[in-house]
Design a protein around this nucleic acid. Structure first.
Lengths: 251, 251
DNA sequence: TATAGTTGTCTATATCAATAGACATTTGAG
DNA sequence: CTCAAATGTCTATTGATATAGACAACTATA
């Protein structure tokens, strides 16, 4: 059974699907940029070439490029072409010892985690199950946004058993690091025991927090960290902007 | 600054973003169904209620529900309401010893992997890097679709170094199992060394292979398996229907 | 057997998305 | 300087998307 090669084939976009062609094309070009398809020239192909490639009118391609320019991803110069300003998809490692800022180290110059708010609440069923405590037991919730080079990458809600880590919010506020906040409670090491990953469309809150446009995708990771005795110390629900991140799992 | 609760609030959809309102609403309802928001009644709220909730015309909600009905997710009955037919997400484990059919065992009754085609080709840069061979070295490509209970869950392209596993395609065709095909070449055990996960909109081929509706999301996993000496034996690119699967990472 | 509540269908209108073609403007290379 | 190649702007037309309102058809229940 011979297979057809996909090289230099006309890239198909679908019509009447509720997703405008210019948006589909913008998504595809964004992907091509992050895949490094245009690294040879550092430029996006000419509008006429893209129009032919996708089988659409040049104006439709222009709408797509305008959207990417709005995101700051490309910049068009009359007479020259459309240059790539920034490449996408930071790789986020998930391993036994996942630490947010470490893995991103070389990929982004400046990392920031901002505390949106914190609260002490009774554990819901989901949180209690993950932290191996009883439903209703007090947990500290930290809500954060993390950015790389000024662009939001993820929003997280993390939960800590309040009995064991009573000053989590205060320590984190001072130290700006979960690892250090744990250390302040006398916990020096912890490991990731499980992660569940789901992809879905972003909801309204995520769209605004991550500065995404509607129809955008989030990768949701539900993860549990435990101390070296296996007792869970953190449960968190992180939502990553899917077009800016990939997850790298090291087993 | 006190935070406003989102209960019973008007759910916002955005306009002029290249994503039709009916599709945004369909996505939100699909998410609500899979979250179990409507479990009390087993029905979607009435069209008029949804229209008020999203601040759109009833006809727009009807377009959204028609799309979900097309997917087989809901079924409308005149005079009664719109019933939920299906809500799911199969969990796919990723661990050191990831074997497709094993992990899904209890979740779906009947698993099928169908071979779409195979070929012997020179390794591209990406494949060569992953398999630690030279670009241009021959590799066997297997293209498969896997289904659970009759619904397609994933499409995969897998690559094997042809020198070491010369009969991969034939063995797989007979044995219907990668693990057994490896065994037939004298390889009894292998482990997963790395997995990269990306979420994006499905392209045209994926939409048709996975029987998805346009705008749907795929989870793409790029994974490498190696023998116990650390030599790569398989590189594969699997694309999962995101609204039917979640990935569970065990470290 | 009424009746309230729900989905189904129809008509009409306004706006957005996409196509088509023409031409202007800018850049870089010969 | 000239010209080819690229982006920028404009007009016009068509089809999809969204709104609005009215009413038909069906279901469950009081």
């Amino acid at each position: 059974m011979p297979m057809r090669k996909d090289t230099a084939m006309r890239k198909v976009v679908e019509r009447q699907t509720g997703v405008a062609l210019w948006r589909q094309i913008a998504d595809r070009i964004r992907l091509a940029i992050s895949n490094g398809d245009y690294d040879a020239t550092g430029m996006v192909p000419p509008e006429t070439a893209l129009a032919a490639e996708f089988g659409v009118n040049r104006h439709t391609v222009r709408s797509a490029l305008a959207a990417l320019a709005e995101e700051g991803l490309v910049r068009a110069v009359q007479g020259r072409g459309t240059m790539i300003e920034r490449k996408e998809r930071v790789s986020y490692p998930i391993s036994k010892r996942t630490r947010f800022s470490q893995g991103l180290g070389r990929q982004v110059k400046e990392i920031g985690t901002r505390l949106l708010g914190h609260a002490e609440l009774p554990a819901t069923g989901e949180v209690a199950r993950a932290l191996d405590i009883s439903p209703g037991d007090p947990v500290t919730e930290l809500r954060t946004v993390s950015s790389g080079d000024g662009r939001p990458l993820s929003v997280s809600s993390s939960y800590y058993p309040a009995h064991r880590f009573p000053r989590m919010a205060e320590e984190f506020e001072q130290l700006h690091s979960v690892t250090k906040a744990f250390a302040a409670h006398g916990l020096d090491d912890y490991v990731r025991v499980s992660t569940e990953i789901v992809a879905r469309h972003a909801d309204a809150e995520e769209l605004s927090m991550l500065k995404l446009s509607p129809g955008a995708i989030v990768l949701e990771a539900l993860s549990t960290n435990a101390d070296l005795d296996g007792r869970p110390v953190e449960y968190s629900r992180s939502r990553f902007a899917a077009d800016r991140m990939k997850l790298k799992i090291e087993t």
